[in-house]
Design a protein around this nucleic acid. Structure first.
Lengths: 187, 187, 187, 187
DNA sequence: GATGAATGAGACTTCATTCAT
DNA sequence: AATGAATGAAGTCTCATTCAT
């Protein structure tokens, strides 16, 4: 990727994160960089294109943090990944805002990027579950539903973390795992 | 509310649900009803106004289904409410789509409507948890985090249900509750 | 004129005077009276119609104050009329504002009403001048130009009076007459 | 100022002068120039903005013609300025129409432009009067009132000149000055 | 006489995108 | 590679006026 392209992409990420897709205009981006309107279109087909590419980079960044940990410890894998990504959210709030407050249904392509990513995550959870079942440490369950639930729980907790309603990543990780593993019942 | 106002609101709900906030124009709404543009503005200040009102009605409708069940059975309350709302989502897919795929950050007012509603729901979960703890049937936990996680799990499962990835409400309810109550661990 | 018609006309005078022609809507008028929109159109053809009628009433009211005083004292007549109308302006500020800050060229009819009226006034000044000349107390001059100048001086002084930049009608009358009769030169 | 900006401004001046503020639309302006709607908004914030700028240019043009003539001849200064501006009115009828038939109270900003200008003119007259008094060639008078009256006389005579009711600038100047200096009385 | 819901023409404005330089 | 003036489709909203009741 050209230096200029990268420069525009980074600025767009920052600005989309601040203003959201719709409020941000192409002019905002180029003005912010002090370049010409036309320059933008040398590197990006249109506004949707750059937003999609921002999203793609973000999900790629998150994906790269997700680890397939040793098979003998599938639930440890879950915990590690949860911690890793929540930490990423806290370190890169722009990324977090874009992922967690994505405005659905502006453009099917956008939704597809996140959808694909979330499917990947759910797949990861599912294989952890299946492995766990084989090992006899995870009870029988509908892995589809459970992986969706785990992802949803994770995303909502991520939002609360972003908004400062949860004091620390550690608390969030612990509670998410306690809940997922042992549930709420006493004993 | 006037008959005409109701008529416009219902149509808007349907159309917003189909096309999303941005793709839908005021002209789409009035053309769909065969009325004049100006008529729309007799009843609604502008496009944001009607969208906000649609959201408000929806969250009111959901709220009215949420029951505060007998105190002696706080977790039964949780199950009843989960079932109730998931059923509502299946019966009224327009409502479900609008709530579950809300495009964040178009307008702070819109987000506030949902935010307020979700806070209400989390409050409900929290009091169920606290009551359960007092009764000794729920383990100690951070109710803030856990209620967020439960809500998130619920919303994501709702999405999968809406998309037909989960076969029935009963499966969804059962898995959500099993997960929340007993977690994933065997035994 | 019907009572209702009068009522609308008076309110319109007040409101046009406050907000000007363009900023005032027909809704403003009917809302202010608590009557229905349709009622307005029972008595007035349209918005232009009522504005024109307001103007017509005003110029008629001013005209009725203009006196053709005894021929032997044409310049006394001028003074009396100046005083009379400036007093009217001070007493009825709505009338004054409408006449003195008329927005030209919205509608030729509106301009015609004032134009006709101003022509009448200039005619009055002209005949005073001509009589004065015949009597040998007024110097030869181009009565067209002079009557326009006198009217213009009067109107501008009226505006200053309305805005409180001139302390009293008496001062205004005295200065206008001194200027018109004796000019500015010493001796 | 850019060439295109100037082009739009000049055309707007012409069109506002012909049709008045209200009847003229932004579309009229751009259609008349054969340019796109959006182009207008590259150079002007909105319709009010361009009208204000037209007015500002006009008063600046007139101001630049107003001279502070030698102190020893304050009344000569008055005459020169009157002649100068009336000539300008005759040469540039668009300018004259816009200044002399300004539609008051559409927008306070518009009125402020003219108000400021007229205050400047009155200030000029006032200082001529004060100088004249010091020199003993002007009688004692209320300079506020008199300067307003002189301005008003001038403006109304300007209108008559514009409408062809006064045959020439010279006649207008002579009568205005005769009236201002010597008044109407014989001898 | 009175109502007021409904109309719809018409104005304003934004902004993603193009293209000649 | 870069520019930025120009485009024009698309949208929002207002308000004078009508007409069935």
């Amino acid at each position: 990727m050209k230096k200029r392209e990268r420069e525009i992409l980074e600025r767009a990420k920052k600005l989309f994160s601040e203003k959201g897709f719709h409020s941000l205009t192409v002019s905002d981006i180029v003005d912010s960089l002090g370049i010409a309107r036309g320059t933008f279109y040398l590197y990006f087909k249109n506004k949707d294109d750059i937003y999609r590419r921002v999203l793609e980079e973000l999900v790629k960044e998150i994906s790269s943090r997700l680890k397939l940990l040793p098979l003998e410890n599938p639930l440890g894998q879950l915990r590690e990944n949860v911690r890793e990504v929540l930490n990423l959210f806290v370190e890169d709030r722009e990324l977090a805002r874009l992922i967690l407050y994505h405005p659905y249904r502006l453009n099917p392509e956008f939704d597809a990027v996140l959808e694909t990513f979330f499917e990947e995550v759910k797949g990861l959870v599912e294989s952890a579950l299946l492995t766990g079942m084989e090992m006899g440490i995870v009870r029988e369950c509908n892995v589809n539903v459970v992986s969706a639930a785990v992802l949803g729980a994770f995303l909502e907790v991520g939002r609360e973390l972003l908004e400062g309603k949860i004091p620390s990543v550690e608390v969030a990780v612990d509670e998410l795992l306690e809940l997922s593993l042992k549930g709420l019942l006493e004993g």
